[in-house]
């Protein structure tokens, strides 16, 4: 038995309700973006889990490499002064 060429893979992002960001939920195969949206609706929102869907070709996503994560995120590692808790403020000072 032979298979026809695989339909391209699309990653699916869903906004569960307005006010929230789109969030990755999984992927679907489809021939084009329009079909990918319909498949994503059928697969991921059978119980009204979304008010908006984004699909993007999986091959179009560039991702950071987990093996390089230490070096990649290193610049932020020693900058604790970016957090409010870095600064000691006397107890009696309010609203800071």
């Amino acid at each position: 038995m032979t298979t026809s060429p695989d339909w391209p893979l699309f990653e699916v992002f869903i906004r569960s309700r307005s006010g929230l960001e789109h969030k990755h939920v999984g992927s679907v195969h489809a021939v084009d973006a329009r079909m990918a949206l319909e498949h994503a609706r059928d697969v991921y929102t059978r119980r009204l889990e979304g008010v908006s869907i984004w699909v993007v070709r999986s091959s179009a996503i560039a991702a950071s490499d987990p093996l390089e994560a230490d070096a990649f995120f290193e610049p932020a590692r020693d900058k604790v002064y970016r957090h409010p808790t870095f600064y000691a403020i006397p107890e009696e000072v309010k609203n800071l």
Binding site: D6, L9, G26, S27, V28, H29, D42, V43, R46
Partner: peptide, 17 residues
């Protein structure tokens, strides 16, 4: 749908559906 979620999860391991 469950089959689709799972094939999608399997594909993240580098195998084609």
């Amino acid at each position: 749908g469950h089959g689709m979620y799972l094939y999608s999860a399997a594909e993240t391991l580098g195998v084609a559906r």
